[in-house]
Write a protein that binds this DNA or RNA. Sequence first.
DNA 1: TTGTTTACTAAACACCGTTTAGTAAATTTG
DNA 2: CAAATTTACTAAACGGTGTTTAGTAAACAA
Lengths: 207, 207
Amino acid sequence: MGISERKEREKQEMKERILNAALSMFIEEGYEGTSIRKIADAIEYSPATIYLYYKDKDELLYDVQGEAFDKLYRVFSEEAVSKSPMKRLEQICESYIRFGLTHPELYGLMFTYNSPMNVVDDLPIWTNAEAAFRFLYDTIEASVQRDLLRFTDIREAVVSIWAFAHGLISLHNSCRMKVIPFDSPEQLEQLIYKLTHQFLNFVRALP
Amino acid sequence: MGISERKEREKQEMKERILNAALSMFIEEGYEGTSIRKIADAIEYSPATIYLYYKDKDELLYDVQGEAFDKLYRVFSEEAVSKSPMKRLEQICESYIRFGLTHPELYGLMFTYNSPMNVVDDLPIWTNAEAAFRFLYDTIEASVQRDLLRFTDIREAVVSIWAFAHGLISLHNSCRMKVIPFDSPEQLEQLIYKLTHQFLNFVRALP
DNA sequence: TTGTTTACTAAACACCGTTTAGTAAATTTG
DNA sequence: CAAATTTACTAAACGGTGTTTAGTAAACAA
């Protein structure tokens, strides 16, 4: 029966159409500007149709988050290519920061907004971030094993480095850096990159 | 004319009644559970009345944010009392982390949610965070001036330390630490406190 | 006592996510 | 091929949101 296969394919294509519309709407209009009704409008279907392919909005945003993590993983693969673990770690951090600063809404969906994480409770594990995370983890593991970092525990190193980079991006994107006076937004951005490298020097193994 | 004074006082009292209802609703029900209609219900007035005292919901949440920062400043004043700048810095970080982990919704309003920051654009400066921020700034300034930190620039030290602590809290409260396996939530919490002290040791001036 | 200001609200507007009941077309069955 | 059934879709409604408008009753001032 080739019919049921075609139907399955068509169902998948429809789901992708919804996902793609949601993704580009999210990038262009952000979290608040992305509604089920507007997505339905964009693909020229009724709002109720979306619920034939996604249980609820959280589930749809979970898939959008997945697309965002795919993007980040692709950036890592392209930009963090050094064979030296410490250099690669620096490249990862730099790429991560740049990604967070240039795609603030996507970054929010990946690391801040609750909505997509409501799905994870009903799921075995949170797989969306896995590939990008492993990229970071493996690099840090290599660095720790070669005694290039002041950390002895890999997991502690990962959490620390991740938290530092995320903290900078998060405070920047949420405008909380406004407590501190800066000459220009560019000066603040430059400082963020500088502090990231400074941090990596602080945690570098002492000579 | 004592009448206009009484009226001004009554107006202020009403604004406080709204603010208090919003604050306790925010603590108990969180961001999503706090609506203008429910606040109006709680103080037994119509929703439209709230708009006679606050321009919009953002402005109300800005004042709730202010109350939250007052709380944090009071915690700092009570818990970070050591005369040694570095010890005081450790106490501040520990208090900050504990505050963020025990009051996740308030913390989100202070450092994550956009809503209250929409007001700041129309304001000269963001004053809500000033007192608590100065507490941290002054302590770090004292540490830098006594060469107790590997930082030479005060502002760089403040941003780095703040970003690290915020990164840990933010990733924890948004459940993003789920990419990493932990034996229990308590183990993760313990790790957060441990990494904070480890970080302060990494940025401590080398002997 | 009359006129005016003040404090408040009912009702509506325009959105939102989601569900239900129904329709028309595609597919399967006899 | 005709009838029965499944599939894909939607109009309309439900209950919620922030916010505005028009109107009312009480308090105050003249």
